[in-house]
Design a binder for these strands. Structure first.
Lengths: 256, 256
DNA sequence: GACTCCAGTGAACAGATGTACACTGAACAG
DNA sequence: CTGTTCAGTGTACATCTGTTCACTGGAGTC
């Protein structure tokens, strides 16, 4: 138990970050072989990545809860006990996986935000859904992990995912607030709308992850449905608005 | 292995149904004690229910995949090996649980359908959401199980849930088709709309299941948000309609 | 009353699991 | 060159898992 505590103190992410502040000039001296030999920290980081990759790999068709430490270690090519050099428990590995997956998701958001799309909601919808589609296909494992653990999980992992997704929805609400004709909406309603959009997007992700080759439903069809769904929501929003404040009966940028 | 096969042949639901066709007059003769003594089939059914209840109980804060046969048996008050008298595997128990939960859900639908609500969508929304709320609170375990396994599970259990939910969504689409001003919608679009509604309802269920006492969010707030979400969707639908077929610009029954 | 059936028992198994412990050897610091 | 650090190894153990097998005793049948 004492040994475990020591491990958890020495092998955290925090540790790696701390170490970065130490003098690491010795790399020039140490890394002479070029490839076979590497600095100790490099090696450690590498097997850490192996562990994460191994876990993600095994998670392709199972829940995180059914993953055993030994299994992950074996697939990563290390002995079970060496696992503790990197994570104090499977839960910690899981949280790290959430962070990694969330990085993917955030990259997607940034990509969608900075995309050259005009002010029209219709353009935004098309671009957003296509961005989503592209990223889901490029990182299926991450998205699968996130959706699965969000609803299926229970431990610290599920909590971490839930928190991040709530944050995500809030950010979207802020984005929405920028739109001219949503200016008069209450924050509460904006959040409601953001949640609806996020929920709808999650459904799309699920659809994309569940298509089996030769299942009838193609990616194209799913994307089209997703766009329709969002257009439906936006139409509701527009109408809602004009109902509550007649002043905004002026033209909206082409909506659909 | 042979023994197992024999068990799975003898202990299915099918078996119980078959037995019903046999002469069961002997009950009059056998059940004399009144309560302590019971017919053999009654006893069996009772411990079967115990098994299902035990599993559902354990599933309160865990995934089905992390449930062990021994655990369930122990909580049901029987020895592990006796489990096989009722189910050939945990998966089979899981599927039975899906059926039981789905019965709850269908009861809810029927209750919502036959409720005295006028033709107005607004009334329907209010009644539906309140019906949902009531049933979720009355059978939290069932709803928790269904949502968790739908998204988190992987095995036959998850497949069973997915199938039932798809069916559910289809039924809703048929219901929607009855509305006057949706008559011109394509089946495809109706399904899209039904999916959106079901998805939104699922989100509501999740919200309801995740409130912790003293979490800020009350049941009332969740119900209100849920109603808003649905109203938003319906508004979108109404507008969509009037966009695609100008003929229907006539008055809709008061929508919100 | 004698015989069959079968839900539930209890001991036993092979395998997997998490984790403690003592170790090795190469990267590292002086 | 010398001593330290530490990622990774191998052994070991207690615990839990699914499943087998032979059994018991009471309900059900004739």
């Amino acid at each position: 138990m004492t040994a475990l505590a020591v491990n958890s103190e020495n092998c955290d992410v925090a540790d790696i970050e701390d170490v970065r502040t130490l003098p690491l000039v010795s790399t020039d001296q140490g890394a002479r072989g070029g490839e076979s030999t590497a600095t100790r920290r490099e090696r450690k980081e590498k097997t850490r990545q192996s562990l994460l990759a191994a876990a993600l790999d095994l998670l392709a068709d199972r829940g995180f809860a059914s993953l055993s430490l030994r299994e992950v270690a074996k697939r990563a090519g290390i002995v079970p006990t060496a696992f503790y050099r990197h994570f104090a428990s499977m839960d910690e590995l899981g949280v790290a996986l959430v962070e990694e997956s969330m990085r993917t998701l955030r990259t997607m958001i940034r990509s969608a935000r900075t995309d050259p799309s005009d002010e029209a909601f219709g353009g935004i919808i098309r671009v957003s859904v296509r961005t989503l589609h592209r990223h889901v296909r490029a990182h299926e494992d991450h998205f699968r992990f996130l959706t699965r653990e969000r609803y299926g999980g229970t431990g610290p992992v599920a909590r971490a995912v839930a928190m991040e997704l709530r944050l995500f929805s809030s950010e979207l609400a802020v984005d929405l607030a920028r739109f001219e004709f949503l200016r008069e909406w209450s924050t509460e309603d904006l959040h409601m709308m953001a949640d609806l959009i996020v929920t709808s997007m999650q459904a799309t992700v699920l659809d994309l992850l569940e298509v089996r080759p030769g299942d009838g439903a193609t990616d194209e069809a799913i994307v089209k449905t997703a766009e329709k769904r969002l257009r439906l929501i936006v139409l509701g929003v527009a109408n809602w608005q004009s109902k509550h404040s007649p002043a905004s009966d002026r033209e909206h940028p082409r909506l659909v």
